[in-house]
Design a protein around this nucleic acid. Structure first.
Length: 549
RNA sequence: GCGUGAGUAGCUCAGCAGGAUAGAGCGUCCCUCUCCUAAAGGGAAGGCCGCGGGUUCGAAUCCCGCCUCGCGCACCA
């Protein structure tokens, strides 16, 4: 029995009690999503609900009185072994072993789909993250959002949402000219120009451009600059994409800012917003009255010199997302950009959208790494590529995904390289590897899954393990709803702990010459089911589930 | 100044979508392998949940005020 099935059964009992006149509660006071919780204290049963406490006020009865009415009905739910009323009015429910144990089989039947849910079915989401400028390699500042954004996209999909992961390329504006000028200067052996980009990677790009265009030095700067710009841009973007691929991060769409400008989308956006009545002219510039909404000041769209601002492109980009049919637009930004929330929401509102519903800006606090070496290639930054080579994809992705985005984070590399409990990614992966080892040993000992008797899974550690496995789908759903994949990571650690304790208490393979029994066979189901859940959860985080360590 | 995030065990952090005795890992101190991965497990010790008010059956959690720290407040991108 899963917690969802139990809570549905309790809800049904509640409605029965009301229909039978045992309880008088207004329909609107009955919670739609009744939840059962795993009590911290094992003496409080397998599952608990505080429904009686919640209904006390609307029913005008003491909570314990309501609990008494419900407890006899709850006791009649198939699979429920006992119901106790505790404390102020909690209902503590004990599930019989055979009912709880069936979960092991249903997990294996669902396989890699176990944990998927329909919490966000019908949601069409655009998820924008990383969006690093194509003027240099990805660095530490992008790493957290890459890991987190990709994991959020995965949990959203697992909850039924239709998600497009998108990377906005800021390939327009003066930065690209400075970038091109820097590469051209390197080609000609001249020093980095004013406002240009220093670093070894510029020289590498220069060499690549020179290989592709051997005669480039013979052109005037004016003629060479566009060629250099395009070639260096393409090479840098290729490097970024390759790094992301190695990091296991996938984007469905790379969206070019330059194409917005070239296609006239920026002018059209200004015109559209002007039609909506939110645009005005002042001091030769064109402004969007974002203060009509929640922004603290109006924003310039077209400067007095006729050049559109970055903000104007942002507005055009928002409209492009809207026009492509994305009802929900999620932006993942660093804390240094949190000032953008107001203006982005104002764009949405000015476009006629609901800023509470159609746009969501997630802010992540900055991350640092103790003892990380600065990149020689790219100047004073920590490169994602170097972190990847140093710590490995799994440790890096897991450790970034296991904290909420709004908590400041300092990674401890020495800890991430350890193979002990101190390293959470190891702890979870080790549990998976151990499960696989047990599976191999079971096969060698002649234990297979030819029999399954759920009532044999009656040890306290089995009840605990089964309960945590049963909670997994709702953890995935919560992770999606709140955009917090760290919930998955934390729950995997709980499952891994429950597994290790079970492993110590209950053997799958017989000792010595003892015969293979249905206890062994049934435990193999539980062993394999746990491995399936750990693998599924690690996959949501972009982390591998090794079979051996 | 305004906005925004944080403050929980010696350390790194969960818990904040109100619930029962506030949790995990590390560190310290005990204990458990002739038997599936001890790379593990069990136990002990360790807390004015930043401070002060409020809301209610109940507050680490919600509201108000204050303190400390991080980040941001461009006709830059």
């Amino acid at each position: 029995m899963t917690p969802e099935e139990l809570s549905a059964a309790i809800t049904a009992c509640l409605h029965d009690a009301i229909a039978a006149g045992d309880l008088s509660v207004p329909a609107e006071a009955v919670p739609s999503g009744l939840r059962v919780e795993r009590p911290k204290n094992r003496e409080h049963g397998d599952w608990a609900t505080n429904i009686a406490l919640q209904l006390a006020k609307p029913a005008g009865l003491p909570p314990r009185k309501i609990a008494e009415v419900l407890s006899s009905r709850l006791a009649g739910i198939p699979g429920v072994a006992g119901v106790d009323i505790a404390g102020p009015g909690f209902l503590n429910i004990t599930v019989d072993a055979s009912s709880a144990g069936l979960l092991a089989r249903s997990i294996l039947e669902a396989g890699e789909h176990y944990g998927e849910n329909k919490a966000l079915t019908g949601h069409v989401v655009n998820m924008e993250f990383v969006s690093a400028n194509p003027t240099g390699p990805l660095h530490l500042g992008h790493t957290r959002w890459a890991a987190l954004g990709d994991a959020i996209a995965r949990v959203l999909r697992a909850s039924g949402a239709e998600v497009t992961a998108e990377y906005y390329i800021n390939d327009a504006g003066t930065q690209m000219n400075n970038f091109a000028a820097s590469v051209l200067a390197a080609i000609n052996g001249r020093p980095t120009p004013e406002g240009g980009y220093p670093g070894q990677y510029i020289d590498d790009l220069a060499k690549a451009v020179l290989t592709e265009h051997p005669a480039i030095r013979e052109l005037t700067d004016e003629a060479a600059l566009p060629v250099v710009r395009n070639a260096a841009y393409a090479a840098q973007m290729a490097d970024i994409k390759a790094t992301l691929a190695d990091f296991g991060v996938h984007f469905d769409v790379y969206f070019s800012e330059q194409e917005l400008h070239e296609g006239g989308a920026v002018e059209k956006a200004v015109a559209r917003l002007r039609e909506q009545g939110h645009v005005y002219d002042d001091g030769g510039a064109v402004w969007l009255r974002t203060t009509d909404f929640t922004d603290d000041r109006d924003r310039v769209m077209i400067r007095a010199n006729g050049e559109p601002t970055y903000f104007a492109a942002d507005a055009a980009y928002y409209l492009a997302k809207k026009d492509r049919g994305f009802e929900e637009k999620i932006y993942l930004l660093g804390a240094d950009h949190h000032g953008y929330i107001g203006r982005l929401k104002a764009i949405a509102a000015a476009a006629g959208d609901d800023p509470e519903k159609n746009i969501e800006v997630l802010i992540g606090q900055l991350v640092s790494v103790n003892g990380a070496k600065l990149s020689k290639r790219a100047g004073n930054i920590i490169e994602l590529r170097d972190l990847l080579n140093w710590l490995g994809k799994d440790a890096l992705r897991y450790s970034l995904a296991r904290y909420p985005a709004d908590s400041p984070l300092t990674l401890e590399p020495e800890q991430l390289k350890k193979n002990t409990n101190e390293n959470p990614v190891f702890y979870v992966q080790y549990a998976h590897a151990r499960i696989c080892a047990v599976g191999r040993n079971a096969a060698a000992a002649g234990v297979d899954r030819s029999a399954f008797d759920a009532s044999l899974l009656d040890h306290a550690t089995e009840s605990e393990l089964l309960a945590q496995l049963g909670s997994y789908p709702s953890v995935v759903a919560d992770a999606a709803r709140f955009r917090e994949p760290h919930r998955v990571a934390r729950h995997l650690e709980v499952i891994a702990g429950a597994y290790h304790r079970w492993y110590d208490a209950c053997r799958v393979t017989p000792v010595g010459d003892d015969p293979v029994t249905d206890v062994n066979r049934t435990r193999l189901w539980l062993n394999d089911a746990t491995g399936q859940v750990l693998a599924n959860g690690l996959d949501l985080l972009g982390v591998s589930a090794p079979e051996r360590m």
